[in-house]
């Protein structure tokens, strides 16, 4: 596969949107990979955090929006806490989720009905509310 790069590809509207929504300077990332190295759920991800940022640097938003990764992030902020360049992957993840959820692009989110039916009596309320807000908009 060949990725054709151009100014248009790299600086697409959707990338700008991710940068704006997340409040992160995607160009600041120098790809040290520390976010991926310290992520507690990285094993479950199809694209690791530093690669997500790299894809965004290359203007490749679509594969990222389609990834499992953005739904797996538990917002523990370990990536943001240790990033030497102050880039918060957790915020980028929230922005990517928001783009999907606000457009309802994907069905890959938790089903509110199912969650409330099966979980509410058992899991702490904060977990249910948190999951619904993060994963269901």
């Amino acid at each position: 596969m060949r990725l054709k790069l151009s100014a248009e590809v790299i600086k697409g509207d959707l990338v700008e949107r991710v940068a704006e929504l997340s409040g992160q300077n995607l160009s600041a990332c120098y790809q040290c990979g520390r976010c991926s190295a310290g992520c507690p759920v990285v094993e479950e991800m199809d694209i690791v955090p530093s690669e997500v940022i790299r894809l965004l640097q290359l203007g490749q938003v679509e594969p990222v929006l389609d990834s499992e990764t953005i739904w797996i992030c538990a917002s523990c902020l370990q990536c943001a806490s240790r990033c030497p360049r102050g880039v918060e992957f957790s915020s980028i993840c929230d922005a990517l989720r928001a783009i999907v959820l606000r457009k309802r692009l994907s069905g890959s989110v938790v089903d509110a009905d199912e969650v409330t039916r099966t979980m509410v009596s058992d899991a702490p309320q904060m977990g249910v509310v948190g999951a619904l807000r993060k994963l269901n908009g």
């Binding site: 990979g33 991926s36 190295a37 310290g38 094993e43 694209i47 690791v48 530093s50 370990q78």
Partner: peptide, 28 residues
């Protein structure tokens, strides 16, 4: 190995290194 180590900790007489190989995108 191209990547910055996130954490070091001691376990059973070893130092466990949590790193990454950014060239293959794998946690190491």
């Amino acid at each position: 190995v191209r990547g910055k180590v996130s954490k070091l900790y001691e376990e059973d007489g070893k130092v466990i290194v949590w790193g990454v190989d950014t060239l293959t995108g794998q946690k190491v």
